[in-house]
Amino acid sequence: MTSVLAYSGRRLLAAAFVVWAAFTVSFVILYALPSDPVQMMLARGGDASLDESAVQAVRHEYGFDRPVIVQYFARLGAAVTGDLGTSMQTGRSVLVSIGDALPQTLALAGLALAIAIVVALLVSWAATLAPFAVLRELALGLPPLGRAVPSFWLGLVLLQIFAFQLGWFPATGNTGWRSLVLPAVNLSVPVAVVLAQVMIQSFRSTWTAPFVEVLRAKGLRQFRIQVRHIMRHSLAPTLTVLGVVTGAMLAGSIVTETVFSRSGVGQLTQQAVTSQDLPVIQGVVVLSAVVFSVVNLAVDLVHPLIDPRVLSRPLGRRRPVAV
C-alpha cells in the first residue's frame, strides 16, 4: 500500500513540476522577446505617433514597468490562484477566453481521438492477424503513408471532396455535429498513425512471447488470445504514447481549426501569436502543460492497474519502452 501511495505522490509531484516549468519557460521566452508588446498594442489602434506618457500609463497598467523578477512572481502568484491576466487585444480575462474556446476544442480532440483509436485498432489488427500476407503487408504500409501526408493538405482535400463536391458536411463553422466530422477526421490521422505503429509493434512482439505458445498449448484460439491477452499487453505502451500524442493534438488543433475556420483554443492561439498577445499565449502554454500533465498523470496512475509489475520494479524503470 505504501508503494502505491509513494508512487502516486511521486507522479503528482512530477506533474506539478511540469506545469511550473512550462509557466516559467514561457515567461522567460515571451518577456525576453525584443519587440515591445505595449508599442504593438497601441500601434494597432492606428495611432502612429504615440504619446510617451500614454505608453507609460499602459505599461504601468499591465505592470511592465516593474522589474522582471517582480513581474514573474506576481504573475506566478496570480496564476496559482487562477488569474492568468487579461488579454491585451480584447481586454477580456485570459481564463474566460480559454474557457470559452476550450469546449469546442475538447469536442474536436475527443472525437478525433476516438476515430484514431478505432482506426489504429483496425489497422494494427489487420497488420498482425489478417489471413493473407498481402493483406498484412498492406495494413503495415498504411501508417507510413498517413505520416507522409501533410495535415493542412489533407484538410483541404477533405473539404474539396466532402464539403464542396458531395456537400455532406459543412466546410466551416462550429454549428452542429456535422461541422465536427471533417476537422476531427483531419486531426485524427497523425494520432492514428502513431497509435497504429505502437500497437503493431506491441502486438507482434507479444505474439512471439513464450507465454503465448503456452496459451495455444492450453487450447486457446487465436481470437481469444488476441482479445484476452495480447490486447492487454499492448495497452500499457499505447497509453504511454497516448500521453505524448495529446500534446501533439493541441498543436494539431491550431492547423485544423485554421483550415476549417473553427473557433477554439487553436484559433485563439493562432490569433494571440499573430498579435503578440503575451498573456493569452502564456495562458495557452500553461493550459497545454496542464492538459499534458493531467493526461500523463492519469496514464501513470492507471499503469499499475494494467501491469502489476510496475510497482515492484526498481525506480527509474517504471515505463515500458515505447517504440
Binding site: 512471447a209 513464450p210 507465454f211 505458445e213 503456452v214 496459451l215 495455444r216 498449448a217 492450453k218 487450447g219 486457446l220 484460439r221 487465436q222 491477452h229 492487454r232 499487453h233 494494467i306 501491469d307 502489476p308 509489475r309
Partner: peptide, 28 residues
C-alpha cells in the same frame, strides 16, 4: 484445422514448457 486442434490441446494433450518464468501471462 486450428479449431479442431485447439480442442485437443490442453484437453487431451497437456504441454509443460521449458522456462516457467516466461510461460505465464505476466498480467493475469
Amino acid at each position: 484445422s486450428e479449431r479442431k486442434l485447439s480442442r485437443i490441446r490442453g484437453r487431451r494433450i497437456g504441454f509443460v514448457p521449458q522456462d516457467p518464468s516466461v510461460s505465464l501471462d505476466p498480467l493475469k
